[in-house]
Amino acid sequence: MLLSIIYKEWLKVRLFWGIALVLNIAVFVYLFVDIRHLFTIEHAEMIWYQAFKIGTLHYAYMKYLLVITGVIIGAAQYTPEMIGHRFRLSLHLPVRPNSMVLWCVLTGLFGVAVIGMLDAFMLYTIIARFFPHEGAESALLTALPWFFSGLIAYLGIALTAMEPRLSRKFVYLAIAGGFLCLFYQGNDYETYNRALWKPALISLLFIPSIILPAYRYRNRSS
């Protein structure tokens, strides 16, 4: 039964997951071309100086890439369920509603996480091609909060979509926005090295919290 729920979620998101994947790959192709171009027009020592002395992030434009990915997958997954109250079809399935909702959410999260891991791989590979191994590791640590923000964006969309009351939707959007801001404090290398686990742990609370709007959806009085 749970495999069947994953199948349903996959049918909804596969096109948009594919679009998000192409978008992510395109951005990393651009990153590769951009850094290669930089090494063509600049002396290597100047790039070294920019990157490791001034602290220029040559891959800063991928900051919001996973956020966009999370929003795309979340919207693709929950919009068809919420239009015309089709979510009631899922709630009538012979599955415990909380399990059903959690499996939907975990499927979407997995979709975002797979793209996030691919991004991490591409980032490491591209940076390692032009910089020393330590530079590539540092890029991963720098970008780690941005990957987390993708998961938060997805969970924020899920939370907002399932909530039946409009005023609460805005509250959930604001909470998700606030959590996203937690991951974008500072523009330096490895800003979150010693602190990332705290917002990351708190953000995990988003997963069980989705039970609440789903419960409110099926127990509303109007």
Partner: peptide, 30 residues
């Protein structure tokens, strides 16, 4: 719920599915 067949007003269905996909999806539940 598995013993209740429910037709929602307006013949609500998962519109993103095809004829075969929706059968495959529901058959796993009953």
């Amino acid at each position: 719920r598995s013993r209740i067949g429910l037709l929602f007003e307006g013949h609500l269905a998962y519109e993103f599915m095809s004829i075969a996909q929706i059968e495959k999806f529901y058959s796993a539940h009953y």
